[in-house]
Design a protein around this nucleic acid. Sequence first.
DNA 1: GATAGATGTGAGATCGTTCCCATGTGAGAT
DNA 2: ATCTCACATGGGAACGATCTCACATCTATC
Lengths: 333, 333
Amino acid sequence: MGSNIKEIATLAGVSRSTASRVISGKGYASPEVRERVMAVVEKLQYKPSAVARAMVNQRTHNIGVIVFREQQPIVSHPLYGKLIDSILAASEACGYSVFLKTDQEMSLRSTDYLLEQRVDGLILISRFRKNVIDHVKKFGVPYLMVNGTTDDPDVIQLVSDDEEGGASAAAHLHRLGHRRFLVIAGPQEHRSHNLRLEGFLRGLGGFGPSVDCEVVLSSDSTFDQGRRLMSRHAEEFLRAGRTALFATNDMLALGAMRTLLGLSVRVPEQVAVMGFDDIGPAAMYTPALSTVRVDTDRIGKDAVAMLDRIIRGEKDLPKLNVYASELIVRQST
Amino acid sequence: MGSNIKEIATLAGVSRSTASRVISGKGYASPEVRERVMAVVEKLQYKPSAVARAMVNQRTHNIGVIVFREQQPIVSHPLYGKLIDSILAASEACGYSVFLKTDQEMSLRSTDYLLEQRVDGLILISRFRKNVIDHVKKFGVPYLMVNGTTDDPDVIQLVSDDEEGGASAAAHLHRLGHRRFLVIAGPQEHRSHNLRLEGFLRGLGGFGPSVDCEVVLSSDSTFDQGRRLMSRHAEEFLRAGRTALFATNDMLALGAMRTLLGLSVRVPEQVAVMGFDDIGPAAMYTPALSTVRVDTDRIGKDAVAMLDRIIRGEKDLPKLNVYASELIVRQST
DNA sequence: GATAGATGTGAGATCGTTCCCATGTGAGAT
DNA sequence: ATCTCACATGGGAACGATCTCACATCTATC
């Protein structure tokens, strides 16, 4: 393990410079010397220290990914998991290693950590408070935000088209004949929940006065919360003759559907249910959940590609990058 | 951003050594000097370079986590996601940053990458082939395996008690009166699937000749596979009067249950279904899936703690660490 | 046969820290 | 007045690579 380039050089009977040239493959080296050095490298299983390399190159080839979320399941949250999967794959392809950090308190700790590590760049996932963003900004480290919530026009952001997605959910349900709706809407300070609700209402608004929609606000966006809220509103919901339920994410939708099924309400015959995100469990559920898919795969991939471009010094990248969402019709509607 | 300790020293009118002493907090420094240096540090938002620090200390305070899995959802697989969540939290607490890599091909690439990065230690998740383990071994880097498959007695492993868990599932179903079973068993070369099956069969074996069990082997352990296999065997299954289904993980179980529900089989009234792992969706399903919980939380936490101990030079840690699994009874049985 | 250019190699500085050791104080003991 | 020993501080090497520059060959050209 402890072999360094000096050792290689000595054993091959050349100088450090020459050994370095052979190993990195740039600069002159006679075939003979090349072979001799490589033989030693092979024998000692020598690997150049990335730390030393980073030191001189001022480039670590690492990127940091920070996921902020209040509730515990962070990586194991299906949506973030998908995003991280995609980011990891893309990073691998670009030659980056990924530091992953999750943050429940949004102290400056996790960012500071990575700033010390001198990562080449940072991907911030989910909403971050202004002070954190400003903190990162100050360091001049390349960074961008995915699925975030900030109106800071300097920040490069990748988001899904939540407004349009909400509207298409409304259109879909209306097309199926539904006229009386209930919406369970997650935290409105969160950009995506807010836009999804707005999009949905805007969509319904276009269908004239015959439609009717009640909105229930939810303080968080978990399965349990969806379940609880539906329990609380089910009776009134059914009595009011509402036949369609839209939730601003799949977790809430699944939770609500769970309650309905528990009350022996038939989905989709009696009530249609729709979510948003297209997380794994949505397709697995019985009945499978209709939803609006966020293209996490492309977003993750592009996030890495764009970060790489910033790192390489490219300027003037588009600030706000909106990714089309896709209506996924399954059994629940 | 680009401030270094030399700059701090100059601005504070002291030497690098003194500045270093103040910043690291070890060694003499008069209060006056201390204050002067800290003021400059504060003003320039100086952060010591972890890279340089790692260089001299020969310690990065980074650990690498590699997850091997053939199929795409890796991080977003609920079980691995939970494990990673727990590892991240524990690492944070121990002062480690985490490099996360996923590997679908199990080339030596991902390990080599991290070995170059000179991580202080490595956590290998899921089964790794012998050549990869041997490769890591050669480098003398501290490492351990979680949920792995190797009979190499040198390797420190953390696993759940799959055999016992399988047996307790059998006992639970038998206790409910079931006598004719079907098992859908995931890849038998995978330690946990193998032991879960064995444990289940051993458990049933203890109940005498009245019980009858058919085993269907599955080449992978996905939801879709569970669904497909159940489709293929449902008719025969029902005709044979079997009333209980056990799958060696929740994904297979949920897939199979999905098929049954699609055929209007009532769960648990007609057929009881059990899985293993207790992934998130198990509790969310309708009906909620009875299962055997793997204590990913403790395993992840302990993995980091043990790795830390190896890194600190502790010797003679227990090689095989088995964590009790817990029967979780829900609606599906 | 002198010069230019290609080819191959090595010495030394550099990246940003830490840490050992040397040096410089002033106070108190002899 | 000298010696010690706290207390403070600075100089320089080290970590392991890379990269620039200088130097040494060798070959081709006029």
